[in-house]
Design a protein around this nucleic acid. Structure first.
Lengths: 349, 349
DNA sequence: CTGTTAGCGCGTTCAT
DNA sequence: ATGAACGCGCTAACAG
């Protein structure tokens, strides 16, 4: 175990005091050290392979150059893509990303959220299971001056107490509903994929309202609830198809792409053709959608815009010590039709 | 900004000295403090909401209770699943996971590897682009007593200088080749998906050898090289199908599932049916394989065994200060047939 | 059983 | 222009 090289070692080798070395290496402006001394210090640091201890620096300065990202499920391509993009975005600004993965457990989410305060980060980006549920805790964090950006898709009635970057599904959903109705669909299902204990959110209701506005009675819409995995989506929809052949929809909207993929699989195993017998629409538009054997129609979230904006808001807040009122940015979603949607099958005579 | 609560505050409130509080809260054995005092300290800590500073603790103790995981591409479900599993495994043992994502860039990989030394972790698990290439650096880390576990799939001729948990593809590959030959396939392609600058590894060669052993001439095997994304796999294979219709394979083995999915897409867009016109086999067996509209035959890596073993090896090494010779664990891969493979089409008369 | 003291490595006053 | 000294929060010696 080779000894760690400390600042002191560098200073000694360069024949200066520790603080001098510190000042020079950190390129502080008030150093009027001679060019020659500077060179000696840099030289010594390089020769010794000096790596400043982040821990000591953090302890001293209270800054970590790291931001946290809380997500629901790393195995969901939506979230791993999000993490990937956000990492790239914050890295450009000199920050590292620390991923906090809830693994679709609400209790773990509570836990991770509570630990957020003493995490070694300068701020955090959160994709919570439900922003409203966490409103009080978010307010607390805001008051404690812990920089936070909430991500998500419902636009709250009342603005959140922290910065927020949100996807607005009304537009994408409206486009989807228009498209499906235009294709002659009359019987729908919505597949609500949730972690255990998670509330439905606004999407199913929004879906029903939009269909109602286009003359589709609630009786012709089934809301199915399933877990967060592909497996459970597949099983749930398979069970529905088996038990209620009378209520088979001709169009299905899933809460996310993973659920859509599971449902597609269930339909195929039940002998249905896609899109001939069933049109399927997902949400998120994960990169894989366009490469599936049957490409998946989806409602796209603007990953890049979301992550870049989140990084901007968060870092600006971190670096501008002053108080800033909570800000909110909203990005529209866009309906992206592919092979999995088509004309409704005309009922057998 | 509410002040941070320090150990000192807890001690004061409980009317004891700092170190007493420390000893009690850390449940050290040599504390003969009265039950009553202990209770007071715990009480005080709870009332104040005391959270020990990990940074200070780390600086003092040199232990971080964190392990690093270096992976090639977080957006690849294989790696995100791996990260998810490993996180679960190390968490059981009281460790956090810090994900270092190379984003399929070899220069970034070099960079991250170099930074590994002063990362605030107690040890790291690495899925490198090529263990052989990093052999010298691995040896260095081992000598510096930095606990490391290398993951990967080639079994090296000479054991690596660090702990290693490896997938052996010979078995799974042999099963795949047997199956494909049994189905009457005579013309093959191998899709080698690599980051820019990455070497081929042993799989293409292994594939050729195994086919040769079953009487397939090298002339009937095409090795295609493509990038690490689905897109590039799709484009590459599409280009091949377009330019060389004379050389169309009836069976394709891809280096990983993502590439297999891209290739499947290309085939479908070229008007081919799967598996009627083309059998496709992936590698990794990511969870999605069994849920694709055409389920994907794949050669499974034993995620769970790999991650658990890696966690065991790494943590045992971390916690047993002593010198331990490098260990190596190997897990077989298993061929998992699904819809994407079927009998070879008999040549048109 | 408890308190005093001394660092971990670094950054930042204060004096020179 | 540079060095000595202090403290971030915590743990681990050593005395009391």
């Amino acid at each position: 175990m080779t000894k760690r090289i400390r600042l002191k070692d560098v200073a000694e080798r360069a024949g200066v005091a520790v603080n001098t070395a510190s000042t020079i290496l950190n390129r502080r402006p008030n150093s009027w050290a001679s060019k020659e001394t500077e060179a000696r210090v840099f030289q010594a640091a390089k020769e010794l392979g000096y790596r400043p201890s982040k821990t000591a620096r953090a302890l001293r300065s209270g800054r970590y150059h790291t931001i946290g990202l809380l997500i629901q499920d790393l195995t969901n391509p939506f979230f791993s893509t999000l993490a990937d993009e956000l990492e790239a975005a914050v890295e450009e600004r000199g920050y590292n990303l620390l991923v906090e993965n809830c693994r679709s457990s609400l209790v773990r989410e509570k836990q991770l959220f509570a630990d957020l305060g003493d995490l070694e980060v300068d701020g955090s980006v959160l994709w919570l299971s439900d922003n409203e549920v966490f409103r009080p805790e978010l307010a607390e964090m805001a008051q404690a001056n812990h920089p936070l950006v909430a991500l998500g898709n419902g636009i709250p009635e009342k603005q959140l107490p922290v910065d927020a970057v949100l996807s607005d599904f009304t537009q994408g959903l409206a486009e989807a509903v228009d498209a499906l109705c235009g294709l002659g669909h009359k019987r729908f299902a919505f597949l609500s994929a949730l972690a255990e204990g998670q509330a439905d959110g606004s999407r199913p209701r929004l879906f029903q309202e939009m269909l109602a506005a286009r003359g589709i009675a609630a009786a012709n819409i089934d809301i199915l609830r399933t877990g967060h995995t592909v497996e459970s989506a597949c099983e749930t929809f398979a069970g529905f198809l088996r038990k209620r052949p009378d209520k088979r929809p001709t169009a299905l909207l899933a809460m996310n792409d993973l659920a859509a993929i599971g449902a597609m699989r269930a339909a195929i195993e039940a002998g249905m053709q896609i899109p001939a017998d069933l049109s399927v629409v997902g949400v998120d538009d994960v990169p894989l959608c366009s490469y599936l054997p049957v490409t998946l129609t989806s409602i796209r979230q603007r990953y890049k815009a979301i992550t870049r904006t989140a990084a901007d808001l968060l870092i600006s807040r971190i670096e501008s010590a002053g108080e800033i009122a909570p800000r909110q940015e909203v990005f529209a979603t866009v309906y992206t039709p592919r092979q999995s949607t088509g004309p409704a099958k005309v009922a057998a005579p």
